Computed example of a mutant assay.
Amino acid sequence: MLALTNVQVMYDRAIEAVRDVSLDVAPGQIVALLGSNGAGKSTLLKAISNVLYPEEGEILHGEISLGGDSLLVMPADEIVRKGIVHVPEGRRLFPLMTVEENLTMGGYLQSRGDVSAALDRVYKLFPRLKERRKYTAGYLSGGEQQMAAIGRAMLSKPKLLMLDEPSLGLAPQIIEQIFETIVSLNHEEGLSILLVEQNASLALRVASYAYIIENGRVVLDGEAKNIAGNDDVKEFYLGYSEGGDRKNFRDVKHYKRRKRWLS
């Protein structure tokens, strides 16, 4: 489905944010993309969506394709038409518009009848949004805003949903509700999901495959259950360290990076 091969991203042709990253998302799969702040996770999502330009970012090398079709030459709106929809970090709602107005903005490529049906579907996923549909979006709680951001994305009828830090700043109970919905969309509707998340434990619980990025490079990837069972991952990302010092994979002498881009 989605394939990235040896992707390199630079900002202002001076700062390398992503270096030789290769990853795949298969149809119907949840793939987790894990890493610390500044690792390059959000940059990868922006590169896929072709929205790097406002920050003077540029793909200098590599290929991004969906079903064999290159996305590098497509404008952002055409990528949405292809079925890739991005829910950015921080929700990015229109704060002065109502909840329903925000939701319908996601359906600007759809017919009026399709938008009406999609709204009903979103309100079934998130009953709280139906209750709040006439409220000004800027006055919603963080959890309600995240529901609205995901709902808006669903109005575009995605084949691949990219979620950037959906748990950020939310209470544990709301996080569980959001992730239950994510799993439901995947299991019941076959929606493919690329999930950027710092809550590694939760991400690995719902994903089938995972990639770990450090300093713009993939340093480990594999089946999520195997990643979750890796001793180094337990120490560096899941909080099971016996010592008190923070480490990264570069500090582990026995660790060998899988250089798939050289194979």
Results as ranks from 00 to 15, higher is better:
4 L>R: 01
8 Q>G: 05
8 Q>P: 00
9 V>N: 07
9 V>L: 10
11 Y>H: 05
11 Y>I: 06
18 V>P: 00
20 D>H: 14
22 S>M: 12
23 L>S: 08
26 A>F: 08
29 Q>I: 03
30 I>H: 09
30 I>R: 14
31 V>A: 10
32 A>L: 11
32 A>C: 09
33 L>E: 04
35 G>I: 03
36 S>T: 11
38 G>Y: 07
39 A>G: 07
39 A>I: 02
40 G>P: 00
42 S>G: 05
45 L>I: 10
47 A>R: 11
49 S>H: 12
49 S>N: 11
50 N>I: 13
53 Y>H: 09
53 Y>D: 06
54 P>Q: 10
59 I>H: 04
59 I>F: 02
60 L>P: 02
61 H>N: 15
61 H>E: 15
61 H>W: 03
62 G>S: 04
62 G>E: 08
65 S>I: 05
65 S>E: 13
67 G>Y: 01
70 S>N: 09
71 L>R: 01
72 L>S: 01
73 V>R: 06
73 V>F: 02
77 D>V: 10
81 R>C: 03
82 K>T: 10
88 P>C: 05
88 P>M: 06
89 E>G: 06
93 L>P: 06
96 L>S: 14
96 L>P: 00
97 M>N: 02
98 T>H: 02
109 L>W: 08
109 L>M: 13
110 Q>R: 14
111 S>Q: 11
112 R>V: 11
113 G>S: 11
113 G>R: 11
116 S>G: 02
118 A>I: 07
122 V>R: 13
122 V>H: 09
123 Y>G: 00
126 F>Q: 08
127 P>Y: 08
128 R>A: 14
129 L>D: 04
130 K>T: 01
137 A>F: 04
137 A>L: 08
139 Y>K: 02
139 Y>N: 06
144 E>Q: 10
145 Q>F: 00
147 M>S: 10
154 M>S: 06
158 P>M: 13
161 L>F: 14
164 D>S: 06
165 E>S: 14
167 S>G: 06
171 A>K: 06
174 I>P: 15
174 I>W: 03
177 Q>P: 03
177 Q>R: 09
178 I>D: 10
178 I>T: 14
183 V>T: 13
190 G>L: 15
193 I>C: 06
195 L>E: 07
195 L>A: 11
200 A>R: 04
201 S>M: 13
207 A>M: 07
207 A>P: 03
210 A>C: 06
219 V>Y: 10
220 L>W: 00
220 L>M: 08
221 D>P: 00
222 G>K: 00
223 E>T: 08
223 E>P: 15
225 K>E: 12
226 N>W: 00
228 A>G: 04
232 D>W: 04
234 K>M: 05
235 E>L: 04
235 E>T: 09
236 F>K: 01
238 L>V: 07
238 L>C: 05
239 G>R: 11
239 G>V: 14
241 S>P: 13
241 S>Y: 14
242 E>Q: 15
246 R>G: 10
246 R>K: 13
247 K>Y: 11
248 N>I: 12
250 R>D: 09
250 R>H: 11
250 R>S: 13
255 Y>L: 09
255 Y>W: 12
255 Y>E: 05
258 R>A: 14
260 R>C: 01
261 W>K: 07
